[in-house]
């Protein structure tokens, strides 16, 4: 591995069909990395994305089937990851509170996808990268994990767990050449948020992707994207609980 993520040769992206991930993949393909692996469960769509990147940028792209709800299948991904310099983990699901509370299986599924699978994958990647003396793992968490909110706390809790995990892994990796970026996007216009209030005004996935790749290049620790969310969340975290619990946000 080169110590500089700007010169990454091999890049893995999970949840690669996601709105944000597609924009990130486009940036790496344009940059011209030696090997780009798109991992996800909808391999038909991934093949279309791969063809797109090959046609546009003559990129070297591979597709890999990966279902994060089956943590044991995360193992499938491990073959061929020996050379990965940069991994961007983007898969995720968002269930409304209602559904999470009334459907325990679905709730467990969300936890498996948003949290458990991340830990299995990241540990594995970290181990490989230490051996190769370097690498960057970017983890797509969310501003929703910064504070439990009455309207969206089941999803928020999975992201809170993920944030704590990613921050901790970064600490453990310190000094090894392996770096972890905790990415906390605000609302972004993707399939996940379609139909929600204010959808048109949400951040553009391309803009968010640009900031994520830049944060990886610079080995940033924590990225709020768009940047204003750093300040918004600072305020939200500062509101005393006696008041916060009365707010319907």
């Amino acid at each position: 591995m080169t110590q500089n993520p700007r010169n990454a040769e091999q890049v893995l992206i999970t949840g690669a069909t996601s709105g944000i991930a597609r924009a990130i993949a486009g940036m790496y393909a344009k940059r011209g990395v030696g090997r780009l692996i798109l991992a996800g469960r909808d391999t038909e769509a991934l093949e279309q994305d791969a063809a797109n990147l090959r046609t546009r940028h003559n990129a070297e792209v591979e597709v890999c089937k990966f279902d994060a709800s089956q943590p044991e299948t995360c193992g499938v991904l491990q073959n061929g990851l020996e050379q990965i310099d940069v991994a961007v983990l983007c898969h995720g699901v968002m269930l409304g509170n209602e559904q999470a509370i009334t459907d325990p299986d679905a709730h467990r599924g969300m936890i498996a996808v948003n949290y458990t699978s991340y830990t299995l994958l990241a540990e594995k990647l970290a181990g490989i990268m230490i051996g190769a003396s370097g690498g960057v793992i970017a983890v797509l968490s969310s501003v929703a994990g910064d504070r439990g909110r009455g309207t969206n706390y089941c999803y928020g809790a999975t992201k809170a767990a993920l944030t704590a995990y990613a921050d901790g892994l970064r600490g453990r990796m310190h000094g090894t050449g392996v770096h972890v970026v905790t990415v906390k996007p605000g609302p972004v216009r993707t399939a996940m948020t379609a139909g929600m209030d204010g959808y048109e005004k949400m951040a553009d996935p391309d803009q968010v992707a640009k900031q994520i790749v830049k944060a990886i290049d610079r080995r940033k620790d924590i990225l709020y994207t768009p940047g204003k969310w750093r300040w918004i969340m600072a305020i939200i975290r500062a509101i005393p609980e006696t008041i916060f619990k009365r707010l319907t946000i």
């Binding site: 597609r22 993707t190 399939a191 379609a194």
Partner: peptide
Amino acid sequence: VYAPDRAAR
């Protein structure tokens, strides 16, 4: 407004 992000959708 519906915004399919891939042909299958």
